[in-house]
């Protein structure tokens, strides 16, 4: 079918297979930050935003994205890099394979929750699995980032 999908502000007018998933669409057009970690909608590695909301691109039909705005890590590069520095300052990225999906969830959380408690943070991010870190390093990075609020200084949305 024919779809019009906007990825990070760029419009894609494409013919796609009807059963294509958004993940496959995004990787096909070079958004390699989007990773697949499972086949059962459980791991969160493929997290991207549809109209600003985090979804699992492995399960989201590309056809359903017709007419919608998609954001991947490549579309929020600077803010991701800013948070990424908090991650690497802890060594919390480890193998890095879950980092893009995790960072997309973190940036969505920042937009959705105001002054979240530690429990709210961990609830919000519970869908992002990481096998390397045991999450404690991620938590330290998050704490420091939420305390510093670099997005205010950097004048980001």
């Amino acid at each position: 079918m024919k779809v019009k999908i906007t990825v990070n502000g760029m419009l894609y007018n494409k013919h796609i297979p009807n059963d294509m998933m958004l993940l496959e669409f995004l990787r096909k057009y070079g958004y390699v930050s989007v990773k697949r970690g499972c086949d059962t909608s459980n791991c969160g590695l493929c997290t991207v935003w549809v109209e600003g909301k985090p979804v699992l691109s492995c399960s989201y039909p590309a056809a359903r994205a017709d007419g919608k705005q998609i954001t991947t890590l490549e579309g929020v590069k600077e803010e991701a890099a800013s948070f990424g520095r908090y991650m690497t300052a802890q060594g919390a990225e480890q193998c890095g394979y879950c980092s893009p999906g995790f960072i997309m969830a973190v940036l969505a959380m920042r937009r959705e929750l105001t002054d979240p408690t530690e429990e709210e943070i961990s609830q919000y991010l519970a869908g992002n699995l990481c096998r390397c870190s045991g999450y404690a390093g991620q938590t330290r990075a998050l704490r420091a980032w939420l305390k510093d609020k670099p997005w205010e200084k950097e004048g980001q949305a």
């Binding site: 909608s41 997290t47 985090p54 979804v55 969830a105 959380m109 519970a126 869908g127």
Partner: peptide, 12 residues
């Protein structure tokens, strides 16, 4: 529903 997988799942 708050325990079901994760926010990105529950948004779908």
């Amino acid at each position: 529903v708050s325990h079901i997988v994760g926010v990105q799942f529950r948004n779908c």
